[in-house]
Write a protein that binds this DNA or RNA. Structure first.
Lengths: 356, 356
DNA sequence: CTGAAAGCGCTAACAC
DNA sequence: GTGTTAGCGCTTTCAG
């Protein structure tokens, strides 16, 4: 029988405990545990057996200290509950794993935490952060020191890397499509109270009136849509809702009630667009005959809805790939932090399915 | 100006570099960086400034080695792309973060990796693992040594903790509902080639014939459904598909073609049920009038579908909470590994919406 | 094949 | 207030 089989040690066993139990030096234990050469097979087995019995697990800290870490990347995400983010995360995790990196996630969507809180929480444990922070790029990069931060969908500021989306291009695609299909009473449903990048005073356009209920545009997405709409002199209304399908459903319900002439709705994201589709059904509206609906994101969810959602689609696996490769370049020193090469802009495609 | 402002050091700065630059001892640097008392404010600021300039970041390994780790938990997940898993992960991440734990995720759904691969990958970096491994409980627990493993939805074997679902109860709920609403030609769509726990030889029932195309039941879920169906002597057919909405749509399409008399379909999970709903629409079937559809999982997606999906719902936040609390107990020694208290069984609720 | 020394970067204790 | 001394648990030399 084994010398020590029972009793759960308060202190976990160390390499010395195993060495002592086996009557060998700690080197021999290292060699046995790590499959290193220069050790007799019988010794190795004996040591491994003892290690198992003692419940010995090498300290990842001691190991990391002496060997240099495998790289670990923080992933800061506002809400795992919005399918957009898992879709993105899935891609990041896959590519990162393939590189032998590990991903530490922080979903900061609960308990009133911010993207900056997430970075602060991650900072002590990671070598870099990729995140949708909703506007703390500078402070977050400061918290990370020299370790690279890649922000998505926000003003990059001092962040080492950034990925942005060309919403002007996207808005043009969608708005023009709506107009070309003869939609003349267009509404845009924006997300508010969101963790998405707000408009700064500079790019806040006082000429864009709040069309409904005195509320205004909240997001750069909204700004781009408004600009395009105004540019082609199309009357439109603005509504806003929290960034959930349920809230969007309610808001769109009110819209369809107040302005039954609405014949096209462009929506902040696909999840909210799903709510709009529901609201249209609630109101007895046929989509797209009575009213077209266009979402934004391109998440797989869109294809499961009825009618299937037309949307400004991002290739999310591609976005993830871009983030990971950018980080790789930054980490390797191949890309300079803050340089042009570290400032990516991706474009949406207009994917027409059934809803528009 | 600062003494060293440019040049990216190959070796990251250590506490000694900062101490040297500031002309103080490393202890003082520690005190400055960690907001510890017993240091002059001016010194603290000077040191912090220098640290920033040198790009100094305390080594998490050295820190962990000396302080004892914050606990880090691996989360092994088969596919972030199935909304079920992010919903679960969201809950786990929230509760874990609240405890100051960090979560390292591994989505093993890509590149032919298994749940065991995921655990092997996570093992060196974590103090425990929570995961849907799809059947490697014993080997995974062995890989973790004394560190607790909590497996979900599989035979727990030697895993320290486990969470299972009472599929017999669930199957009864759904099947009986279908029968009580006079569905007489019921089909069950099972997931195959899945990472879900297969039937072991012991619980494989040779009396359950393969009803369609020579394929058989793959999952314990399927077994429970089959048992209940047979028990109440209801004729039924079995079809199988890969665990995606698209595959389910194709499979269900074939079913509706081959057996147009089918008036009720029970589906392995909600994602696949979404595909079945699509297939029904493709076939011109009205749901639930012509054919009822019942899913399993209770993910929010179900409410966005048309018709809204009736389903055997799990409270996923609750499942996450159970996993985290169980792990907490295990880690604290309040719950003994493998004991009854570490073997949880949760139940589904039948949530009736529009599709059945 | 095995052991002894040295040191990774940090912080807890104690000095001063 | 600040510096000095000891390790944390492990792997890398380098000797035997």
């Amino acid at each position: 029988m084994s010398p020590i089989t029972s009793g759960r040690p308060a202190k976990p066993a160390t390499i010395l405990d195993v060495a002592a139990a086996a009557g060998v030096s700690r080197q021999t234990v290292t060699r046995a545990m790590n499959g290193m050469p220069g050790i007799k097979e019988s010794t190795r087995e004996r040591v491994q057996e003892l290690a198992r019995e003692l419940g010995y697990t090498p300290s990842r800290f001691a190991k990391g200290l002496v060997q240099g870490s495998r790289t670990s990347v923080g992933l800061a995400i506002p809400d795992l509950t919005n399918p957009y983010f898992p879709a993105f995360a899935s891609s990041v995790v896959e590519l990162a794993t393939r590189r032998g990196w590990q991903i530490v996630v922080d979903d900061y969507g609960h308990g009133g935490r911010s993207g900056l809180d997430a970075v602060d929480h991650l900072a002590p444990h990671v070598d870099a952060v990729i995140g949708y922070l909703g506007g703390y790029a500078d402070q977050a990069q400061a918290a990370l020191g020299r370790r690279p931060l890649i922000v998505l969908d926000e003003i990059p500021g001092g962040a080492a890397g950034s990925i942005n989306f060309d919403y002007n291009q996207a808005a043009k695609l969608a708005v023009d499509h709506l107009r070309h299909t003869n939609r003349v009473r267009i509404a845009y449903l924006d997300a508010c109270e969101s963790r998405h990048p707000g408009l700064t005073p500079e790019n806040q356009d006082p000429m864009v009136p709040s069309r409904v209920g005195g509320s205004g545009l909240c997001t750069v997405r909204g700004k781009a849509v408004a600009d395009r709409l105004d540019q082609i002199r199309t009357p439109w209304s603005l509504i806003t809702a929290e960034e959930t399908a349920g809230a969007a459903r309610v808001a769109a319900g009110a819209l369809f009630q107040d302005r039954p002439e609405t014949d096209g709705v462009l929506v902040f994201n696909d999840l909210m667009a799903a709510g709009v589709l529901k609201a249209a059904a609630d109101a007895g509206l046929r989509v797209p005959e009575d009213c077209a609906v266009v979402g934004m994101d391109g998440i797989p969810l869109g294809e499961l809805l009825t009618p299937e959602l037309s949307t400004l689609a991002l290739d999310l696996r591609e976005v993830g790939r871009a983030a990971v490769e950018l980080l790789d370049g930054l980490l390797a020193g191949a890309i300079a932090p803050g340089s042009d090469a570290a400032r990516l802009t991706l474009e949406h495609r207009l994917v027409l399915r059934e809803s528009a």
